[in-house]
């Protein structure tokens, strides 16, 4: 399948390679989970929560656009491509193994509780990440993080409230949330050991992110009367382009139009 990356000359040794890869990683996380959430549009259990999830998807698409625009600007500034690369090229013209998102973000929606829990695990990570990123040495990434942090705060609150309501709800909703937690737990450690920031010379306190994330997750899961899985069997690979089949399936749908009618606009 044709990929836009074939049009870009970016050797790993190039001084801008680290920051471009890290920016794409941040963008891919936001875009992939945004697209997953948008799949719910019109199918939510009640109208208000359907709208809530669509708004969260919108915030995340906005973040992804800002990151992709910055990556495109870096490619232009460094003369890394003979053709103009745009934000859309990154979203629509890359293959699954060129995406650098965490595996958690691409997992299929499951039932409403699985989606809520995926959002809670991810948004809590994003919240503590952006709290640091907003003060980082790269002013572009710092500005995007500062802007997005206010919105992510809403995402954490909204999703944690639903985790608690459903976990501490009926026997059936409790069991469904516990099953969802067991199912998603293997994808959580990748968030905390991502490691693409250092190659971009972005200095983050990963230990602090892990401590803060663990504290918040533990407290909400306890309020939800759920049990943290004791399994330490984790899976990794998203940041290196090794994805679960869910991403390929998702991209087939998301990229269908541009792949079928290249360059089409509306």
């Amino acid at each position: 399948m044709e990929s836009i990356l074939d049009k870009i000359q970016l050797p790993g040794s190039h001084p801008a390679a680290g920051i471009i890869h890290y920016t794409l990683h941040l963008a891919d996380n936001a875009l992939v989970i945004a697209h997953r959430n948008s799949e719910w549009c019109g199918h939510g259990p009640i109208l208000e929560q359907d709208i809530a999830l669509a708004n969260i998807a919108l915030d995340l698409v906005g973040q992804a656009r800002n990151f992709y625009q910055y990556a495109a600007a870096l490619i232009a500034e460094n003369n890394l491509s003979s053709i103009t690369i745009t934000e859309d090229d990154f979203a629509y013209l890359r293959a699954a193994d060129e995406f650098k998102n965490f595996l958690l973000t691409e997992q299929s929606n499951g039932h409403w509780g699985t989606t809520i829990l995926r959002q809670f695990l991810f948004s809590t990570y994003q919240y503590f990440l952006y709290r640091q990123l907003q003060h980082c040495s790269n002013e572009h990434l710092a500005a995007i993080a500062q802007k997005a942090l206010k919105e992510v705060t809403y995402h954490v609150r909204w999703s944690s409230e639903w985790v608690i309501r459903l976990g501490d709800g009926t026997a059936e909703s409790h069991q469904k949330m516990q099953d969802a937690l067991n199912e998603l737990w293997p994808f959580t450690d990748e968030l905390l050991t991502g490691g693409l920031a250092s190659a971009a010379n972005i200095s983050l306190d990963d230990t602090l992110i892990k401590t803060e994330w663990t504290e918040k997750i533990t407290s909400v899961i306890a309020d939800a009367t759920l049990h943290l899985p004791t399994s330490r069997q984790y899976v990794y690979g998203g940041t290196e382009g090794k994805h679960t089949p869910h991403l390929t399936a998702m991209l087939k749908d998301m990229q269908y139009l541009q792949r079928t009618y290249p360059g089409v606009e509306w």
Partner: peptide, 13 residues
């Protein structure tokens, strides 16, 4: 509050 997210991202219902 009915929902923290309303008809647009900037509004609550």
């Amino acid at each position: 509050a009915i929902s923290r997210f309303g008809s647009t991202a900037c509004k609550a219902l």
